[in-house]
Amino acid sequence: MDFSLFMERYGYKILLAVMSALVITFIAVPIIGIAVTAKKFGLTFGAFLLIIALVSSLFFRRTSEAYAQAHGKYFYDNRKRR
């Protein structure tokens, strides 16, 4: 079996395996890092994550409202139609 026939038969399976491994790695590394840090620092780390989540949700809400107001002002017509 030559190389082109091999790649035609198994190339997509190999590509799928490599891409799946990359996606799993990109997802697993942060999760493992958070788990190790949580195990090391315990309740302090949990409180820190909770504070970060609350603060980021407040900033996300403000930026989302500003974004919506900007689009409402510039992309929608407030004039009444006849």
Rank of each mutant, 00 (worst) to 15 (best):
F41V: 01
F48I: 09
L5P: 01
L16N: 03
F3L: 15
G42R: 06
G72V: 07
G46N: 13
E65P: 01
I34F: 10
L22F: 15
A70P: 00
V29R: 03
G46E: 15
Q69C: 00
A68D: 14
L54C: 08
A70V: 07
V36D: 06
E8Y: 02
F41I: 02
V29S: 01
M7W: 11
T37C: 12
L22A: 15
R61L: 08
I31T: 03
L54E: 12
I32P: 00
F45Q: 12
F3N: 04
K13Q: 07
V36N: 05
E65C: 02
G72Q: 14
F6V: 09
I52Y: 11
K73C: 05
E65Y: 05
I32R: 07
S4M: 08
I51T: 13
G11W: 06
T63D: 02
G42L: 11
F6C: 08
G72Y: 08
K39N: 14
Y10E: 07
L50Y: 09
G11E: 08
I32V: 12
L16H: 07
L54I: 12
V55Y: 00
G33T: 11
Q69R: 09
K13C: 00
A68E: 15
F41R: 11
F26G: 12
L49T: 09
I27K: 06
Y10F: 14
F45W: 15
V36K: 13
G33D: 13
I31M: 07
L22V: 13
I32A: 11
F41N: 09
A66T: 10
K73S: 05
V55G: 01
E8L: 08
T37Q: 09
L54R: 04
A68T: 11
A28K: 02
I31W: 04
A68N: 12
K73V: 04
F41L: 11
R61K: 08
